[in-house]
Design a protein around this nucleic acid. Structure first.
Length: 285
DNA sequence: GACGTACCCTGAGTTACATCA
DNA sequence: CATGATGTAACTCAGGGTACG
């Protein structure tokens, strides 16, 4: 088994939250020992009712009574591989704890009490989690001993803590993506507006009739296209109007400027003006 | 080496209790 | 005091990895 000691800092770098694995429902997968555990679940719960978990755990509370998920010692006790080193240590830990028959449900009442970890316990758990967000069995036992909790409780705490961390990271990522989306929307709006202004200019003959006649053809170094009328009006290639983001590189704000070209006609003028700098009102500078 | 089985661990989702406004 | 919202301990289930025969 992989030793988790050296793995995992605190950061769960969930950089792609939407890529979370989708679980296919596979009813045919053979699962060991789960049926019996599931079967006992309700009994277990009923059995648990009346146990005060806000005290030091007792033998009666411990996993070997049946209060556990399939991960716990229930399945491991009969385990083939029998990492009994672990279980022995767990039992040893559990044996330190006094048994309390009455707490174990003498009344048969059905109340699942819930442990509230003390501030000190929480602080220690948090500290440990910062160091490594998963625990190997030895660490788990040591921590359980230190906190006077059952190993299972430490295990559950780490599971839930990882889940919370991941959830938080997902929220952060969502927020970030939301802002990206807003920025892009704003950029899109701005470019659409720019296109609209260019179209307006194109339809105003007096604007371009007074232009100085261009003397040379120009070519955009980015797209390598000469600003020819037919190309600008009918070519299917991306234009600022249809794809502002894709066209953005063709509208550099800095050194990328073009000289006018000697083409007559409204669209020709517009085509050449396409690469001319405009002020905020869409007029030529 | 491939295969089947048993076990262990973890993530995801859910439940239920405790606490607080 | 009752109630809804929220936080979280504990649980169930499914899947992946490993050991072993």
């Amino acid at each position: 088994m992989v030793d988790k000691d050296d793995d995992l800092g605190l950061s769960l770098a969930l950089k792609c939250p939407e890529a979370l694995p989708q679980r296919p429902l596979n009813l045919f997968v053979q699962k060991k020992a789960l049926c019996s555990d599931a079967f006992h679940a309700s009994e277990t719960r009923a059995y648990l009712r009346g146990i005060d978990v806000n005290r030091a755990p007792t033998m009666a509370d411990c996993e070997d009574v049946g209060v556990s998920s399939p991960n716990s010692t229930i399945s491991s006790i009969s385990g083939k591989r029998n990492d009994r080193e672990t279980n022995e240590e767990e039992n040893e830990n559990e044996n330190e704890i006094e048994s309390s028959e009455e707490d174990a449900g003498g009344t048969g009442d059905t109340v699942r009490k819930k442990l509230r970890l003390s501030k000190e316990q929480s602080a220690i758990l948090e500290e440990t989690f910062k160091e490594h967000n998963t625990l190997n069995p030895k660490q788990k036992l040591a921590l359980a001993k230190q906190l006077n909790l059952r190993p299972r409780q430490v295990e559950v705490w780490f599971q839930n803590r990882r889940a919370r961390t991941k959830l938080k990271q997902t929220e952060v990522d969502c927020e970030y993506l939301k802002r990206c989306c807003e920025n892009l929307t704003e950029e899109n709006r701005r470019l659409q507006k720019e296109v609209q202004e260019l179209r307006t200019l194109k339809l105003s003959p007096q604007l371009y009739m007074h232009m100085n006649p261009p003397t040379t053809l120009t070519m955009c170094p980015s797209c390598e296209r000469v600003a020819v009328a037919s190309a600008s009006s009918s070519a299917p290639s991306p234009s600022p109007a249809s794809n502002p983001l894709a066209a953005a590189p063709h509208f550099p704000l800095g050194p990328h400027q073009h000289r006018p070209m000697p083409i007559a006609g409204p669209w020709a003028g517009a085509a050449s003006m396409r690469h001319r700098p405009f002020d905020a009102h869409g007029t030529r500078s």
